[in-house]
């Protein structure tokens, strides 16, 4: 079984080819497809007069700051427009397909981040209210397994729900790693805007779980988190994690043909 995650930059630049590529595998294999799409959310925020906000973590990672107004747009775009466009595109290619958010079922349970640390416009570290973002703490696989057993490909929008029934913006990478671990997927493929884990400009072909700790300091912010979570996923029972380019013509075939970085035990 495959779990495939496509990041927001790839959604912007190459979603058609990604969906075409995914459809080839989804017609014959159980597959869960997780999508980002932050730039589309940003565009729609502006269209409805909600100015998008971003914060920078002390590690230098720029993230969306989701307040109540932005959460409404986030849910409309992620679970609505984007998710259903992907579903309808897969259906048009002959794939039995269902699109859900993590609030359906529910499937993704998260804890709301009460406060987060940012670097403010003066370059100083500050702690602020966490807004409507969360950390996934549990994946309930009942709905996923039911749909997969009926032959459906499942497309998941990165929205989770907390214990009070509040929907939360959750990181799509994190969703992918947690879902793949919960389902003990054979392969988790992370399609990004780079060809793999790069060290000194060269793609690292393979990383063993035991090597991750020694490598994370040599790769950029963002990719280091992917590596750590990939390692955790493999330890949790995922066969292997492939980090590869989503910007090529047939990204999934490309990734499964050995192009990119494979993390395995």
């Amino acid at each position: 079984m495959y779990v495939v995650k496509v990041g927001g930059k790839v959604v912007d630049k190459n979603l058609g080819n990604v969906v075409e590529s995914v459809s080839r595998f989804a017609r014959t294999s159980p597959l869960v497809f997780i999508h980002g799409g932050g730039n589309v959310v940003t565009e729609f925020c502006r269209r409805v007069g909600v100015e998008p906000k971003f914060v920078t973590s002390p590690e230098g990672i720029r993230s969306r700051y989701t307040d109540k107004d932005e959460l409404e747009v986030y849910v409309m775009v992620m679970a609505g427009k984007l998710n259903k466009e992907i579903v309808s595109s897969l259906v048009s290619k002959g794939v039995k397909c269902v699109g859900i958010s993590g609030a359906d079922g529910p499937t993704l349970i998260a804890e709301r981040k009460k406060r987060i640390v940012i670097v403010d416009e003066r370059g100083r570290k500050r702690v602020i209210d966490g807004g409507f973002t969360g950390k996934v703490v549990e994946v309930r696989v009942d709905l996923l397994k039911t749909l997969l057993s009926l032959g459906y490909t499942v497309v998941i929008a990165p929205i989770a729900i907390d214990s009070e029934g509040t929907m939360l913006n959750v990181d799509a990478d994190q969703v992918a790693f947690k879902v793949a671990s919960a389902l003990k997927a054979d392969k988790l493929v992370i399609l990004t805007d780079v060809p793999g884990v790069l060290i000194d400009g060269t793609v690292v072909k393979e990383v063993k779980v035991g090597e991750v700790e020694g490598i994370v300091s040599k790769v950029g912010a963002g990719m280091n988190r992917k590596l750590i979570e990939a390692s955790n996923a493999v330890v949790s029972g995922v066969g292997e994690v492939i980090i590869s380019s989503g910007l090529v013509e047939d990204p999934l075939t490309n990734a499964l043909s050995g192009n990119g970085t494979v993390v395995r035990g």
Binding site: R64, Y74, K114, R115, I116, T133
Partner: peptide, 24 residues
Amino acid sequence: LEVVNDGGTIKLRPLEGVREDWGE
């Protein structure tokens, strides 16, 4: 330490209740 405004007086308290940042 976190800077807090306690009724007009600036004070410090240990930073608590902060989660890892994983926003979209």
